[in-house]
Design a protein around this nucleic acid. Structure first.
Lengths: 205, 205
DNA sequence: GTCTATATTTGGATAGAC
DNA sequence: GTCTATCCAAATATAGAC
């Protein structure tokens, strides 16, 4: 009995699977490095050392250092997207906002380098590829529609919301990276935001 | 008629003045460089080139690259302090908060590298010297007391305030560095904050 | 105070053998 | 796909002449 799949294809598949696995391994090591040494501290020499490979061999998997950053960027946004799905939905807008803010600030506090890569433009000259950027756009869209779903459809309100949450995240990272000084403020911040936006609405009608 | 000051002293003074002037010139060039190439892009080679000096000669003025950063850090905080004094005082809390927020967000938007240096820990291993850090502490204290002066004395409220303002600043830098998308939200944000804090207070009494 | 010379390390990237 | 060999540029920093 012979396989229906030509041997060549199998070989190509195996090779492909292995290639992807190695690529994944390299990216894992890269995450560890940027977490330890800062986002700008990534070097191909050290990365090669970490995966027990000559740095030159990395070029089989990534065309350049920026390509590594690009994959990390896409990867980080995918993590965000995946975990976004798991947020419990609720009818109470305040509970939804609170869950969203908690999620985002925790995500930031968990990994400073990742936050820098995804949300601040801290690497000179790095710009994500269109494919990677598309994932980031998708993340943004999900956030936008999550807010719209609980009644916050205004663009300016959304900007105010993201500023508030980004502020909590950035202060948490800058002033109390291992604590919860700003995480503790989330419910208060959410109350402030909802009161304000609802208040404006009542005023208008 | 002879001078009362010994010639030696004059010579020493002249030398000192000149030394300080050159130091200043180097720091000016360093500011330009970080503005153009990013905070992490500063190199002593390029800095030497910019002031028409061999990079090694810079060591006459600064013991290390981190020492240059340290002076920039102190300098930036001094700029903040000086300009802080010029904010108009008012009896209306909202006007004070609005002026403060506008001041801070503009300061951030004006110079991204400076903002990174002063408020985010984006350079691995860099820590300001105690003397430089003291200036930053002074800046913080002024902000704190400016808020207390218009009735916002609570620590948690101050943290919420700084998060809100830092958020507007960081979003402005990240998403619309040359525009005013988040600057436009300042009055709305101030209204939100004051309503909320006053509201809590009324609730408590 | 500035230079030349130099040490030393590190960086990203390419060519070509196997 | 991984290696050796290599390039080339850049980095911070020190020693010592002038």
């Amino acid at each position: 009995m012979t396989s229906a799949i030509p041997t060549d294809t199998v070989r190509r598949d195996r090779r492909h699977v292995r290639h992807e696995a190695t690529k994944h391994e390299i990216l894992d090591a890269a995450w560890k490095m940027v977490r330890a040494d800062g986002l700008n501290g990534l070097s191909l020499r050290a990365l090669g050392r970490a995966v027990d490979m000559e740095p030159q061999s990395l070029y089989t998997y990534f065309a350049s250092k920026h390509a590594v950053y690009d994959h990390l960027f896409a990867d980080g946004n995918r993590q965000l997207l995946t975990r976004f799905e798991r947020i419990e939905v609720s009818d109470d807008p305040s509970q939804v906002l609170s869950a969203l803010a908690r999620f985002f600030v925790s995500f930031a506090a968990e990994d400073r380098a990742r936050y820098e890569l995804l949300f601040m433009r801290t690497i000179p000259d790095f710009e994500p590829s269109p494919e990677s950027y598309a994932i980031a756009v998708e993340v943004f869209a999900r956030g936008r529609s999550a807010l719209a779903a609980v009644g916050f459809g205004d663009d300016a309100d959304f900007d105010l919301w993201t500023a508030l949450v980004a502020g909590l995240a950035s202060q948490q990272l800058a002033n109390d990276p291992d604590g919860s000084r700003y995480i503790r403020l989330i419910d208060d911040a959410v109350a402030m935001f909802t009161e304000h936006v609802f208040g404006k609405r009542v005023g208008k009608i």
